[in-house]
């Protein structure tokens, strides 16, 4: 680590102003990504502004949507009866992230703000057509993920919460990286009656919706509907764990499993 100034914000506004006043500040949530980056000296912020003490930012409430505060830990989402009651697939997804230590520290806001290509939540954000509430505006899911570790967030913008739409049914299937346990591929399928949305993570530079899968499922969720779908894998991620071609194959298989999970 390099030396930095650590400050704990009491409110969203204070956090924003602390960052504003810093030469090169960064927010800290669960720290599961930021702290290792700092320890490896891959980042050298002048100020680290901890969001952890901000009141109410970890709340979970269910109404027309499932609204989850940015500071909600993965373990809290996984264990939330309210989330499970409304969107079981979302609780399932949170329970599949990393390991127990990571789930007890990592947050929803940190995950989406980071836009790791292998993170799980982004698949849900897209499939469940979530709205990202920040301290400045609301951002639609489809406008949020922009690329590798890149989102629509402006410098200093804080994610306060996400509102996930409640589908008739949804399912998530993850093919974990055997080493890191991040997603090599993760697919969430959500059936809204009029529309089926499919969010895919792990395969590309950032999470995306799959036109092929959505088209195939337009007539309703049925495993057979995906029997002949092939996923174009041009431009997909490729590494020692999985080639682009294999990822393309896995997207199709995970989609089938997500459909099966949604049908139950």
């Amino acid at each position: 680590m390099y030396r930095f100034k650590y400050q704990k914000a009491a409110s969203v506004a204070e956090a924003a102003s602390l960052l504003d006043g810093a030469e090169d500040g960064v927010y800290l949530a669960g720290g599961m990504t930021l702290i290792p980056t700092l320890k490896a000296r891959l980042a050298s912020p002048t100020d680290v502004i901890d969001l952890g003490a901000i009141d109410g930012m970890a709340d979970i409430s269910v109404g027309d949507t499932v609204r989850i505060g940015a500071l909600a830990r993965h373990a809290e989402v996984a264990a939330s009866a309210a989330v499970r009651g409304a969107i079981p697939a979302l609780a399932d997804l949170a329970g599949l992230i990393g390991d127990a230590h990571v789930r007890n520290r990592g947050t929803l806001g940190g995950s989406v703000a980071n836009s790791d290509p292998a993170a799980d939540y982004p698949a849900a954000v897209l499939a469940l057509n979530a709205v990202v509430h920040t301290d400045r505006r609301t951002i639609a899911a489809d406008d949020f993920f922009k690329g590798l570790f890149e989102t629509a967030l402006e410098p200093g913008e804080i994610v306060k919460s996400l509102a996930f739409q409640i589908p008739r049914r949804a399912g998530y299937a993850k093919f974990p990286n055997p080493a890191s346990r991040y997603a090599i591929v993760g697919v969430m399928v959500a059936d809204f009656g009029a529309e089926v949305r499919v969010g895919v993570t792990g395969a590309g530079a950032c999470a995306f919706r799959s036109a092929e899968l959505e088209r195939a499922l337009a007539g309703g969720l049925a495993a057979e509907a995906l029997a002949d779908v092939t996923i174009p894998y041009d431009g997909f991620n490729s590494d020692i764990h999985a080639s682009a071609e294999y990822r393309g194959h896995l997207v199709a298989v995970m989609a089938q499993r997500a459909v099966a999970a949604a049908i139950g």
Partner: peptide, 28 residues
């Protein structure tokens, strides 16, 4: 099943952390 020390053609170690070097775990 999973462990492999991999170098790229230039001699950089690709599997230089547990993110890529896969140790067997209890559930394997």
């Amino acid at each position: 099943l999973c462990e492999h020390g991999v170098y790229d053609a230039s001699g950089q170690l690709v599997t230089g952390s547990f993110l890529d070097y896969c140790m067997p775990r209890a559930d394997d």
